[in-house]
Simulated scan of single mutants.
Amino acid sequence: MSEITFLPHNKKIKVKPGVTLLEASRRARIAISARCGGNAACLLCKVKVDNPSALVPLTENEKTKLSHDQISDNIRLACQTRILNKKVTVSIPESPLSKVVQAHLRNEMDQGI
Rank of each mutant, 00 (worst) to 15 (best):
K87W: 04
E60V: 13
T89A: 11
A78R: 04
S91K: 11
S91W: 06
V49N: 02
L66N: 03
L58S: 10
V56I: 14
N74V: 01
T59R: 03
K48P: 00
D73V: 01
D50N: 13
K48L: 08
K63N: 12
V88R: 04
R82A: 11
E60P: 12
L84V: 06
R82H: 10
I75G: 03
K63E: 15
L55E: 00
N74D: 09
P52M: 01
P57A: 07
L55D: 02
L55G: 04
A54Y: 02
C45H: 06
I92A: 00
I71F: 03
D73F: 02
K86N: 12
C79A: 07
N85C: 07
H68I: 15
S72N: 15
V88D: 02
S91V: 10
L43P: 02
I83F: 07
R76M: 07
N51K: 11
L77G: 03
S67I: 06
A54S: 13
Q80S: 10
Q70K: 07
D73K: 09
T81Y: 04
I83N: 04
Q80T: 09
Q80W: 05
T64Q: 13
T89F: 00
E62Y: 05
N85I: 04
I83P: 00
S67G: 11
L44D: 13
L44M: 14
S53E: 15
S67F: 05
L55H: 00
L43Y: 09
N61A: 15
K46Q: 08
S67Q: 10
V88E: 03
I75L: 05
I71M: 09
I75D: 03
D50G: 09
A54W: 04
S72W: 07
L58I: 06
S67T: 15
D69A: 15
